[in-house]
């Protein structure tokens, strides 16, 4: 039935997509690996090999390292917090009542907005100007105003907070879809055995959320690593370099400064960082999967 001819037809069918993929992704990626070893710049006519110079400069540059560090902090915190909130919301809102449906759509709503819109909106909410909404609320209750986006120790977490707010609802929907597929017989059996609510959550619900969790965790990680637009809208990487990420650094060095080779090297480092982090997460997810079976 599944003979070789048939296989060939299938291969032909994916060919158009594969060609596009090859030209638009694989070739440029390979080229940026190549360029990272040269002195390529838009302002520089002759191309020369410089070995690993770009990588050396990259790891000596505290600004670039700050970008890498911020990106990892951003990705890990959004991953953990978003998923934790999404699971809790999903478990509490997985009911068939009008009020639950209302809250569900309310929580999901921010995901409909563009990241840039949310970014600019929160820039006004969190500003240190007199009309800053958040600070006005705090002052109304007798607190001191906080410089949400201008304080180097807080700015990154302010940005993270907006993204958790925006995307938790999205992840929640995926978790709810997963919850529906869990066999209710399991809960009935647990009830007969007299299991507590907590026990049911940790022994039945959480382990069986594996399919949704593996998808959501990888999605959060990848979105976190490539964060760019919200930073641009809210802080432009500032104050100083406090909210620079790999992507903002890459754009700044590669295009604004014309150090294209340097930016290519950063792209390569980014590739490796994403690869290692995802490997770690996948290993963890595989262990989880094995436990289930």
């Amino acid at each position: 039935m599944y003979n070789k001819n048939r296989q060939r037809v299938f291969m032909l069918m994916i060919l158009p997509t594969f060609i596009g993929f090859f030209i638009l992704y694989i070739v440029p990626t390979a080229m940026s690996f190549f360029y990272s070893l040269t002195n390529w710049s838009v302002y520089n006519a002759d191309l020369q090999f410089v070995g690993l110079d770009n990588f050396r400069m990259l790891f000596e540059d505290s600004k670039t390292l700050a970008g890498i560090k911020n990106t990892i902090i951003y990705a890990l915190i959004t991953l953990v917090v978003q998923n934790a909130i999404a699971i809790i919301l999903a478990v509490f809102l997985d009911k068939k009542s009008k009020s639950a449906n209302f809250v569900k759509s309310l929580v999901f709503l921010p995901a409909v907005l563009s990241i840039l819109v949310v970014g600019f909106l929160f820039q006004y909410i969190m500003t240190s100007a007199d009309y800053g909404l958040l600070n006005n609320i705090i002052q109304f209750f007798g607190g001191d105003p906080v410089n949400w986006l201008g304080d180097k120790d807080i700015a990154l977490y302010s940005v993270i907070a907006t993204q958790v707010w925006q995307w938790s609802g999205w992840l929640m929907v995926i978790y709810i879809a997963n919850l529906k597929s869990i066999d209710s017989a399991l809960y009935e059996a647990a009830d007969i055995d007299g299991a507590s609510k907590m026990k049911k959550f940790f022994k039945i619900t959480l382990p069986l959320l594996y399919p949704a969790a593996s998808f959501n965790i990888l999605l959060s990680l990848i979105n976190g690593m490539k964060v760019f637009d919200v930073i641009l809208a809210m802080t432009q990487g500032g104050p100083g370099y406090a909210t620079e990420t790999i992507m903002t650094t890459l754009i700044r060095e590669g295009f604004n400064s014309g150090r294209n080779a340097y930016a290519s090297a950063l792209g390569v480092v980014f590739f490796i960082a994403v690869f290692i982090l995802s490997r770690i997460v996948i290993t963890f997810l595989n262990k989880w999967e094995r436990k289930l079976s």
Binding site: I26, P28, S32, A263, S264, G267, F270, F271
Partner: peptide, 11 residues
């Protein structure tokens, strides 16, 4: 899928 993610400069 990881390759797809790399912010390619040349593209």
């Amino acid at each position: 899928s990881m390759i797809m993610l790399v912010g390619t400069l040349i593209g």
